[in-house]
Design a protein around this nucleic acid. Structure first.
Length: 929
RNA sequence: GGGCCCAUAGCUCAGCUGGUUAGAGCACCGUGUUGAUAACGCGGGGGUCGGUGGUUCGAGUCCACCUGGGCCCA
């Protein structure tokens, strides 16, 4: 064996079994299993059992697919925050949930059943939906676990659980009791052949040719002067209740032989052409505003039709005046609400005009359904207009029109009776806005956003003509009068709690009501149960009640709701309404929102791009810790970009972190705290400095964590890792760690510091890099990959300020600043001149004014300087004149010690090892061999 | 079309109440080391702060408008 090899064996080179590469794809699942088998979640709860609690209430993801990368981001943020709070000593019960009901599932299941030609009724459809939902709960749960999410999975909540459903009904009962529930009409999509309501998702848009007609509405009290509307659904004219104009657009009064017409200014030419007017004059021009308030006469029904203002009126096509049928369109409906128009819809379930006081006899019974020979209702309406000479023009109009996904026929908008929650009764809306003042928002504009929604939303339509949901427990008598009774609903809620909401669908009216004492007025009546279900926003909006108030580990209100910013309109809002109604206070103390995952260009990610959307597709490639590090390195309050470039960068910084930890572990090999640690007041200068930097880091990270600025945490970690450790501390201490005697006090001093830095640093990254930190901790404590020593059971580090303003730390900082600026510059010059390679080959000369401040430091720390600057020797050259400190460097004189690689004046003999520096000789002499 | 929000080096982020040549980490280029080695050190080149106009002695930082993007509505 050659001398070099032998000498190398006398060094204390780092050694650890902590692998350089994570091999996360294989190792992380093992760790998850280990956590689960050890009951880590329960252990953490046990540790903080008696402490103040921090309740993060989980917003339930919808159970209709694999976990999306955005959902993964959400759960990772929650988990990171909870791990931090848990380490801080808070009791952090975390019960995840699932949102089960809703149209997307019902729609998918219905499609599958139909494709398989399986007959179904409400009960069997609901059973299939429940199975569908449950399947995805299993899938998503395991995908969440794979991300490292620690939770009380045993107690997870599902909105389809009977106990949960019962609380939904109790919430509804509260609404009823407070008199907030009322019945009113609202237009919905209706499929005539299927005789069923449709949701937006069940609509397919197809090319369609509709008749387009121009119809004058004569203005009351103005002879031969009309507003003119343009419509492509003539059959809705009988339901016309108003004519809308844009308040700020200009309108012209056009004079032709037949009379005068008000037409949007920019549409006059087109209009005249379409109507074949030979000539026309414009005799007046007004803004829409000044037309508002006029009254028109319906063209063929004895009814007036006021001119109203609507912002959505455009001058793109038509006449600038819009036919408003509040019972047949959503815009029309909202305009109707605004102007107190009747939501009039003279159409039965089969799409035929029904008889009432208004409907002309010749229209009654006619179908509005489009058949091969056209639409009977359209034909007749046009015929009536022609007869009255009120058809200014008629054309064919090609456009996209909604069709029913099942029957493939055009759907109609049809107002039907729905249940609403009155949001203004007893000042509910004001109270909600008011209570928002007690809620903290991160980012703070969240308050503004939710407030905007609260202020502007119309009354809440909570009924849906669906099967997969919680039934609205209402009965109707034979005249259609509803029986809506809070006590009865609570009675039914108790039954649902026992049997699930399926009983509503599987039981008849008598058995549902069995055991309930009806009021006198209802006794003996033939009652039939309603068929509507509740809006699913009620479902999830009740979670604070069903979960926070019912689980004994949890408490109400929650300390934190943390969801995507879309939930300002969704869950945050629905939860607030239900909470205010039942408990007169908000269910959360703080709302934290994150943005959406976008691609590298900042555009939304969509399936059509072919880029992966599921969390799994990333986890199986990069592992969970890299994904967690990505989440936490982004400022999640705005859009969160994700691209290969970004992930590559995250991977690199992960490797750096991992390697830094590995270096520390390697240098703690054989170090036993009880036996070898040095008392803190005896630590060497550079070790004190490193510990003071660690204390700063701890304070900064704790601060960033407390304000949920996780990206700042990651930046701090990275900077510490490279700036404080790799390029400075670790670089400097290598000499003493490797070359001094194992038990040398300088070496032990440094190991003491590393030990503390390691324990602090690993705890600091623990909430984010949960797998890696736990792995490192286990190796640190037991030398093994998996052990029962869990990082998560450790307390959050406290910033140790004992070194903050010590002379050692201040001196070190001055000297390190000098190193980073002038020393490195001098060394680099030497290196680029090919005079040295590694810096140990250099000798430094420092010329400085003897009276300067730095002179004192240099003199005081002379013996530390070579090590600090990583050179072989340092010569001080104090001068009496006032001069700026100057650094010169040259190749060190003397000979190179083959063991320490330092250049010394001369080598001494060290037995079998040959010639080494005196310092190394001393070390070697102490070795027991 | 409306409400809310975002826009600083190739990437991820700092830049407090407006004030010297706009910072960090990563990447890149060059280079050293081969005793953290599928690692580590040193050096260097990159932004005029999305655009335009304004307020001001002075603006990345305030105001207006515009452009691009996101969420939610229509």
């Amino acid at each position: 064996m050659n001398q070099a090899k032998k000498l190398k064996d006398t060094l204390n080179l780092p050694h650890t079994d902590f692998p350089m590469r994570a091999n996360a794809v294989e190792n992380e699942p093992q760790r998850i299993e280990h956590w689960e088998q050890s009951g880590l979640y329960q252990e953490v709860q046990k540790k903080n059992k008696t402490a103040e609690s921090f309740v993060l209430h989980d917003g339930p993801p919808f159970t209709n697919g694999d976990v999306h990368v955005g959902t993964a981001l959400n759960k990772i943020l929650k988990d990171t925050i909870l791990r931090f709070k848990g380490a801080q000593g808070f009791k952090t019960p975390y019960i995840p949930g699932w949102d089960c009901h809703g149209l997307p599932i019902e729609f998918k299941v219905t499609k599958t059943l139909r494709n398989k030609k399986i007959d179904y009724d409400n009960v069997s459809l609901r059973k299939s939906c429940a199975e569908f939902s449950q399947n995805y709960i299993e899938t998503q749960r395991s995908q969440f676990k794979r991300l490292g999410v620690l939770a009380d999975w045993e107690k997870e909540y599902r909105t389809m659980n009977p106990r949960y459903e019962a609380e939904i009904l109790r919430t509804f009962a509260d609404f009823v009791e407070k008199g907030l529930i009322y019945r009113s009409k609202k237009p919905i999509y209706w499929s005539i052949p299927c005789s069923t309501a449709l949701a937006e998702a069940e609509i397919e848009y197809k090319d369609h040719v509709s008749p387009s007609i121009y119809v004058p509405f004569e203005i009351d009290g103005e002879e031969r002067c009309s507003m003119v509307v343009w419509t492509t659904t003539p059959w809705t004219l009988p339901a016309n209740m108003a004519v809308a104009v844009h308040p700020r657009e200009k309108y012209c009064k056009v004079r032709v032989d037949k009379g005068h017409y008000w037409i949007g200014q920019s549409l006059v030419e087109d209009f005249a052409k379409i109507c074949d007017f030979e000539s026309f004059d414009i005799i007046d021009t007004q803004t829409g505003d000044s037309l508002v308030g006029k009254n028109c006469r319906h063209p063929f029904i004895e009814r007036s039709s006021p001119v109203v203002a609507a912002e959505y009126v455009t001058m793109d096509s038509g006449t600038g005046s819009v036919h408003i049928a509040p019972g047949h369109g959503l815009d029309d409906y909202l305009t109707g609400l605004e102007h107190d128009l009747e939501i009039y819809c003279p159409l039965d379930d089969y799409g035929c005009y029904s008889a009432d006081d208004y409907m002309p006899d010749e229209l009654i019974g006619l179908s509005v359904l489009e058949k091969s020979n056209g639409c009977a209702a359209n034909h007749k309406v046009i015929e009536i207009l022609e007869k009255k000479n009120l058809l200014l023009a008629q054309k064919k109009h090609h456009h996209q029109y909604p069709h029913c996904w099942r029957s493939k026929t055009p759907v109609v908008f049809r107002a039907m009776d729905q249940w609403f929650v009155s949001l203004d009764k007893d000042g509910l809306r004001e109270k909600c806005i008011d209570k928002l003042g007690d809620v903290n928002f991160t980012p703070d504009w969240g308050a503004n956003r939710i407030k905007g929604f609260l202020e502007s939303r119309p009354d809440w339509c909570i009924s849906r003509q669906r099967s997969w949901g919680v039934p609205i427990p209402v009965f109707f008598d034979e005249d259609g009068n509803p029986l809506l009774d809070a006590d009865l609903i609570r009675f039914l809620a108790n039954r649902v709690e026992e049997k699930g909401s399926d009983i509503w669908f599987s039981s008849d009216e008598n058995s549902l009501l069995e055991g309930y004492e009806l009021d006198e007025q209802w006794k003996g009546k033939v009652l039939s149960k309603g068929t509507d279900t509740l809006d699913v926003w009620i479902d999830s909006g009740c979670s604070h009640r069903s979960v926070l108030r019912n689980e004994k580990d949890l408490s109400w209100p929650a300390d934190l709701y943390l969801e995507g910013s879309d939930q300002h309109r969704g869950w945050f809002q629905s939860s607030l309404w239900t909470s205010m109604t039942s408990f007169d206070s908000a269910p959360y103390r703080r709302i934290l929102t994150h943005g959406f995952v976008v691609d590298g260009e900042g555009r939304k990610i969509s399936k059509s791009d072919g880029k992966p959307q599921t969390a799994d597709s990333y986890v199986t490639k990069y592992g969970a810790d890299v994904l967690r590090l990505w989440v936490c390195s982004e400022d999640f309050r705005r859009d969160i970009p994700l691209s290969d470039e970004i992930l590559d960068q995250v991977v690199r910084s992960y490797r750096t972190l991992r390697n830094t930890i590995r270096f520390q572990l390697g240098n703690l090999d054989g170090f036993l705290w009880e036996e070898h640690s040095v008392s803190l007041d005896k630590l060497d200068m550079i070790d004190c400095w490193a510990l003071s930097k660690t204390a700063e880091l701890t304070a900064d990270i704790t601060d960033a964590m407390n304000t949920y600025e996780l990206h700042r945490v990651v930046q701090l970690i990275n900077r510490f890792c490279s700036g404080v450790l790799s390029s400075t501390y670790h670089d400097i201490i290598k000499d003493r760690l490797y070359t001094l005697h194992t038990d040398d006090s300088y070496r032990r001093s440094t190991q003491t510091a590393i030990y503390q830095i390691f324990e602090t640093f690993v705890r600091l990254i623990g909430p984010i890099l949960s797998f890696t930190a736990d792995e490192a901790w286990s190796f640190h404590k037991t030398g093994k990959k998996l052990s029962s020593d869990f990082l998560l059971l450790q307390d959050w580090p406290k910033a140790d300020n004992s070194f903050a303003s010590s002379e050692s730390v201040e001196d070190a900082q001055i000297l390190l600043d000098l190193k980073e600026s002038k020393i490195n510059e001098a060394l680099e010059n030497l290196r680029s001149s090919k005079l040295i390679g590694q810096s140990l080959e250099a000798e430094i000369v420092l010329t400085f004014s003897a009276e300067s401040e730095i002179a004192k430091v240099l003199k005081r720390r002379l013996s530390n300087l070579p090590e600090l600057f990583i050179v072989s020797s340092v010569i001080l050259d104090p001068v009496s004149s006032e001069t700026e400190l100057k650094v010169t460097a040259h190749h060190a004189p003397g000979v190179r010690c083959p063991r320490s690689w330092r250049w010394v004046p001369e080598l001494v003999e060290a037995g079998d090892w040959g010639d080494v520096s005196p310092r190394c000789a001393k070390v070697l002499s102490k070795l027991n061999l």
